[in-house]
Amino acid sequence: MLNRTMLLTLLACPVWLLFAGQAALANEPYRELDRPRAYTPDVKGDARFSDTYRYWKDRSRLDPAMAGNPDEYWKLNWKFMDPPFNQAIHGGHFAMDHGETRFMSLNRTHSFARCLGAGKQGLKGLRAGYPRYVARLGRVAGLEEMIEHCAAKEGVVMQNGSYDNSAVALYIASHSNGMPIRIQVSKGPMRQAFERGRLLYHTRSGRQNFACASCHVHNTGKHLRGNNITTPFGDASHYPVYRTRYELQSLHLRMIECQLDTGAQPLLPGSRAYTDLEVFLTALSNGYPVAVPTERD
């Protein structure tokens, strides 16, 4: 039998889940984890993961031959859709213009930008430091959640995931273009969010019993019909993104789409679980530059 001290140690140390295929705490609901592993919270961690980072490390030096090769394109992690490789004008540009207009009207007294955490540098670098712990909310929040929160203080409805919200996020992100994502997940609530996000990434759910990791960790590079599965590293640096099928899409809406595609009940944008996943995924983009506006199929 476990004595009290041992039990407390186990509970305090989530690492024990690494060694258990299944979460089996007596009071916790039954869940299956798909082979959790450790992650370096930096885009360079992909070198020991899918080892494709070297191909998409520098967006201005992508190999056009790889982009056009059905067996190789996935190794570019879709960065051939990003500027400067992709010079097309698309819906993301119009959304960014719309975002600028909406931002200007919200920020007449500068209180909106201040609420979002803009300092002397203005909007520069703001996107690269989200998600972050927001003391006055007492929780970790993504940029889109903060836009909704700060717009409400200006008396404007800008729901998380709405076109206006993502458009403003896109405009703000454009001031971080070329700047590497930099979020700290080494201590405090951000570390806890990263750790929860890491486990969620490996938690099975839905009718097909898939975890994100079932495909994007354990089957990277393989075919799902005509599509090759890509790495989770360096994927959070281009949101919100213009989707040719879905208009403007925030990262949380992307998660909803992933869940619907794999037969799992989606959650609301801004839910704690999605925010934890956002922290985890953004940390895997640490060191990789923001590039907006961009598009995906």
């Binding site: 609901p29 709405s162 969620l200 839905g206 799992a264 999605y274």
Partner: peptide, 20 residues
């Protein structure tokens, strides 16, 4: 628009577990 619209999905997925 500042509001996100919701519509019925193709399938009822409420009887399987979520990530919440």
């Amino acid at each position: 628009s500042g509001r996100l619209e919701w519509m019925p999905a193709e399938r009822d997925l409420t009887s399987w577990t979520t990530l919440s």
